[in-house]
């Protein structure tokens, strides 16, 4: 993947610095980018990507460059504060460790965000579905990778359960069945580009923020509980919507490898949701009780950023 297109002063500075072109100088101060959310989102996305697959046109050493880590720190602090504030606004009650799996179900049941899968099943036209798949590709081409960073940071039971889940996400040892690979084959089959990061320049800021939130939680040991809560909420809200995606894709005659990707998730995530909520989050909360509330913060965040993305996309279609 090549560096993304800048969207404002901060990302212009960042891309120039990563590409080693021109005189980048000192990073713009936060007041210069604080007004451009789009600029902020693409900049943090780019900095996080240095810890995933990186960029052909950037130096691999940039991942640990102190000058860039300072910028990443400022962007992450702003994002985390925003996410925690949204969670605090729901007035969450503290949860006892043994109640975590039930509390996760409550958070999921209370989610009233709009459903893109409902729209795809009944109303979306072909262009809208292709637009949704381009947006989704930002995450699905690196599906599960953010939670893989959490493995070494967990106690014994949660670690074993996360590995069971990740093993399935990564194809149970068969590269042909790796979920991100299934999605790539699906993109090709519907005539879209399948290479890693192909549509990052088209990603809406809501989508980048959704991806940044997942990466932020996965990359920080301090946020391990929130990362696992995020994973649980994702898995718990996947199998029924995936079935609706299959029905919508079939309605639009986009079935084949892309509906096979969603079809796999009907079955896989009906399993993963229990592994995530009980065996990962439940045991983590028992072993590290201070993580219980963090798990719920992560679960809420997952649903909240998806709801914001879904609202923005539906609004752009005049669908809501």
């Amino acid at each position: 993947m090549r560096l993304p297109k800048p969207r404002g002063p901060l990302s212009e500075w960042l891309v120039a610095r990563l590409a080693g072109t021109g005189v980048a100088g000192a990073a713009p101060t936060s007041d210069s980018w604080a007004d451009s959310w789009d600029d902020e989102c693409i900049s943090l996305w780019t900095l996080h990507e240095l810890s995933f697959r990186g960029f052909e046109d950037a130096d691999d050493r940039a991942e640990w460059d102190p000058g860039l880590l300072g910028v990443r720190h400022d962007l992450e602090t702003a994002l985390e504060a925003r996410l925690r504030e949204r969670w605090a606004r729901t007035d969450p009650a503290p949860v006892a460790p043994e109640d975590v799996p039930a509390a996760l179900e409550t958070v999921v049941a209370e989610d009233d965000g709009p459903s893109l899968a409902d729209h795809v099943r009944r109303h979306a036209d072909r262009d809208q579905v292709l637009e949704l798949l381009r947006q989704r590709s930002v995450y699905h081409l690196k599906e599960s990778d953010p939670s893989a960073f959490v493995v070494p940071r967990l106690p014994v039971r949660a670690k074993a359960a996360l590995m069971a889940l990740q093993f399935d996400e990564y194809g149970d040892g068969d590269p042909n069945r790796l979920h991100s690979h299934l999605f790539a084959r699906g993109l090709e089959a519907v005539g879209l580009r399948a290479e890693y990061g192909a549509y990052v320049d088209d990603a809406m800021p809501e989508n980048l923020e959704m991806n940044n939130a997942g990466s932020l939680l996965g990359l920080h040991r301090r946020l391990r509980g929130a990362a696992m809560g995020h994973l649980a909420a994702f898995e718990m809200t996947s199998s029924l919507p995936s079935r609706k995606m299959v029905q919508g894709l079939e309605r639009l005659e986009l079935d084949g490898p892309m509906s096979a990707y969603y079809d796999e998730h009907v079955e896989a995530d009906a399993i993963h949701e229990h592994l995530a909520s009980r065996d990962i989050c439940g045991t983590l909360a028992e072993d590290e009780p201070d993580q219980a509330d963090e798990i719920l913060f992560g679960a809420f965040t997952c649903l909240d950023v998806e709801a914001r993305f879904a609202s923005a996309l539906l609004a752009s279609w005049g669908a809501r």
Binding site: S239, L240, R243, V266, E267, D269, A270, I271, E273
Partner: peptide, 11 residues
Amino acid sequence: SRLPWCDGTHK
């Protein structure tokens, strides 16, 4: 819808 596997319908 895909017995014998669970597809989340029970929810």
